[in-house]
């Protein structure tokens, strides 16, 4: 992929990942990540048409537990690390843009 096209791709990906990048970071990451992705192309050498994907190493299955009321941390404790709270709720900035 052309360097310029890849840079656009990178900016789109950063937006999807909700990451603000400075122009310097965009420039640097474009160079570095293109380099890394080129190295990853090595994988295409291998024929894996008859191989099942494996997301996990152990034959473990999700373990369900009984839905019992158990002791847990208090609401106060749960909110203690929040940057902004109001009436025991997490407070966030407005979702809609302010009307001009």
């Amino acid at each position: 992929m052309e360097r310029r096209d890849f840079k656009e791709q990178l900016k789109k990906t950063a937006h999807l990942a909700r990451l603000h990048l400075t122009p310097e970071e965009e420039e640097l990451f474009t160079k570095q990540l293109q380099n890394i992705l080129d190295y990853f192309k090595k994988l295409q050498e291998l024929d894996t048409s008859n191989v099942e994907p494996m997301a996990h190493v152990l034959p473990l299955y999700n373990i369900w537990r009984e839905d019992e009321v158990k002791e847990s941390i208090s609401q106060e404790e749960a909110f203690k690390n929040a940057p902004e709270i109001e009436d025991l709720g997490f407070k966030i900035p407005r979702i809609m843009k302010r009307e001009e």
Partner: peptide, 21 residues
């Protein structure tokens, strides 16, 4: 939102996420 650093300069939610991260 739930814990950790937040950038308080952002005006809306999406930019808050992006600036914080």
């Amino acid at each position: 939102v739930k814990y950790g650093y937040r950038d308080f300069t952002a005006e809306d939610l999406i930019s808050m996420y992006k600036q914080t991260r």
